[in-house]
Design a protein around this nucleic acid. Sequence first.
RNA 1: GGGGCCGUAGCCCAAUGGCAGAGGCGCACGGUUUAGGUCCGUGACAGUGUGAGUUCGACUCUCACCGGCCCCA
Length: 826
Amino acid sequence: MSETTSERDGREVYDPHAVQARWLPVWDRLDLNRAGIRDGAEKKYVLDMFPYPSGDLHMGHAEAFGIGDVVARYWMRRGYDVLHPMGWDSFGLPAENAAIKRGEHPATWTYANIDVQADSFRRYGISFDWSTRLHTSDPGYYRWTQWLFLRFMERGLAYRKKSAVNWCPNDQTVLANEQVVGGKCERCGAEVTKRELTQWYFRITEYADRLLDDMKDLEGSWPERVLLMQKNWIGRSTGAHVDFAVGDRKVTVFTTRPDTLYGATFFVVAADAPLAEELCAPEQRAAFEKYRDEVRKLSDIDRQATDRPKTGVSLGVVAINPLNGEELPVFAADYVLADYGTGAIMAVPAHDQRDLDFARAFDLPVRVVVETGGEDPAVTGVATAGDGVLVNSGPLDGLRKTEAIERTVEILQERGTGEGAINYRLRDWLLSRQRFWGAPIPVVHCPVDGEVAVPDDQLPVRLPSDMKGADLQPKGQSPLASNDAWVNTACPKCGGPAKRDTDTMDTFVDSSWYFLRYCSPSYDKGPFDEDAVRQWMPVAQYVGGVEHAILHLLYSRFFTKVLHDMGMVDFTEPFSALLNQGQVINQGKAMSKSLGNGVDLGSQLASYGVDAIRISIVFAGPPEDDIDWADVSPSGSVKWLARVARVAADVGALPAADARDDAVDRAVARAVDDVTRLTESHRLNVSIARLMELTNALRKGIDGGAPASASLRDGVTALATMLSCYAPYTAEEIWSRLGHDVEGGDSVHASRWPTADPALLVEDTVTCVVQVSGKVRDRLEVSPSIGEDSLRELALGSDAVVRALNGAAVRTVIVRAPKLVNVVPV
RNA sequence: GGGGCCGUAGCCCAAUGGCAGAGGCGCACGGUUUAGGUCCGUGACAGUGUGAGUUCGACUCUCACCGGCCCCA
């Protein structure tokens, strides 16, 4: 009796755990997933978004990496030299919080979790090239993160400025715009407030146009919704800058509707913008400050809620409309945001809903300047934003919207009071964090020389190893600030006493270039070996969750473009194709502790085995769709894999012979042809269905009369190789049952993808459907090569058709040889 | 409010504009069996959310509505 089966009632039973125990050590020894060892083979880089080391793997990892593994293994089987690397995004807040709780250094928790995950990935049978393993928290990695920061600084792409920033009161750190979701901290869910702070930024806005325009290269190979989300995030809008005079000051606003300038009846400044304070008349100061303090308590989400009544306060000054010299009262209000555009707007209540709401609340005039055919906004309370003909607008009267916009810009330019302009929703990337567990910003602040970059040969600026537990407690500034020994240093320029920058970088900086490091993970002359990168990059297939649609993917694209401009890489987009897998949910909802609907991966694997879980995930539906675990039946997968094992065992036991069976050969060829196409196009659920069909066909071949062993052996061989991408253990098991010496290196994971004989894909006869008026009336068995004319004759001669026509004359006959004829009576 | 995606048997899902069903779960039945379990096999169940339109022909394309999800406000 084989060690992988047990006898029960005289029948073999498939034991997934025994199969795993048998092959895992053999694979460890054979080390089959190394990249760069197939001479002359075309290269393909398959990348999974690297994980954060939070505890052990969960269902989400099982899905994402399971899908990525199918893709990687498929290309390996197809003979490509595949790079399928692995590492950890190991800086970040949870490690720090755990360290505070446990009185440890964050590295302790981090690296312990990484080891647990690494072993789980290994047992989960993912085809990683483990020699690529990297951790962004290793000094050997963050040295180069710091190095890249300094290059950005040299190019003016990293800079420091003071402004109102997003502040998470819970995590005690600033956040990038991208990390504020619906007014809340993306990580902890706390309501984000604003703080005035001096922080480091990456000048991503300088790349806004290229990030937008280069998306055309990604169309078709990235999910459309991701491209759309990035497009919306960058938010390019064209319009004009218009200069208003307020007292002796010039205040510029951005508007997408310069054509409505004559409709401006008041002027609004964001209450929390420094500009509001500067413009405020002395007699209004008390009222303004009271209002501003109220506004500062509000979150952005409250401020932008559309159903909220509009509030504001007069600043006691007027702004002069540059076009008609009209005096517009200036208000401070909270519905204008300080960091969008210039923080000030011209308000055109007739044609902008928010302005109209404000005008009605404050009893301000509403002047229609575009006749859209809609009802009077002053009466209906509904602003008319559409196209129309300009009225009440002096020289613009009679023009349509587009012409009026052009003309207004011309007039403004002639007078020197404005110009055409493009505005972006995208803000510069705020990268400083007041936290410990991240790459220190490699800058020294010197009383003499100011901001001084740490010289390359002094990198990395290492994190101190002696800080733990309470030392890391958030205090509103980086924990590093309290470590005098670390902070105090010599200025690299003058040698005098100086202090290190105590902030660390956003962990998204670490993950914006890791895919490059994978090409040469231990390279020590730069962040990556440019030759290695030239060989592997760009990534042929990237696999990961849609939650990174904006953050990580936009940042990585930005980094790649900067590196391209630095001459370090010869491409401008890092990821040629992107696959967003769905989420694993349970009972219609995301798994969560509070709902108590979590599904533990470990216990699923213990109950059903690795392969059954992998199959269940892939078979549940299209990879992009969410999987509701309540709809999944892992025991069904076990049943199928056991059936596969039995089929293979039965075929392996057949006496060697040359007998062939045409039906089996055709079924195998069809399966190979379909599964190849389906796997390649990521239709993985349908691939599994075809493999199940093939299993059924092989079963039939075994049970029906005299089994044709040659055909069946070929079928099981093809099945094993195709299955190796999906269920690596079971595939190896049946491969071995066919007599392959796996221990000696003849593993299914070194086998080549089967090819289908085209002759076997052509059927002898096909069923031709004959319709009358679109209704099926007859079926004809015809040759696949039948001509249109003879098929028409055949169909018209059919008794069933004659009966259906019932003497009616024929108007047309649609012939789609060889599968369909549609007879249309008059 | 704007933009996008999705509604197919009891359930999950298939179907280059051409026979609504590939595969699985569940169910029923038959065979195997000491067994209602395993295994082998057979079968039933929907006319594609609703209503129009285009077409010889619509699950597929267009429009509206209903329901669900996502992004931006």
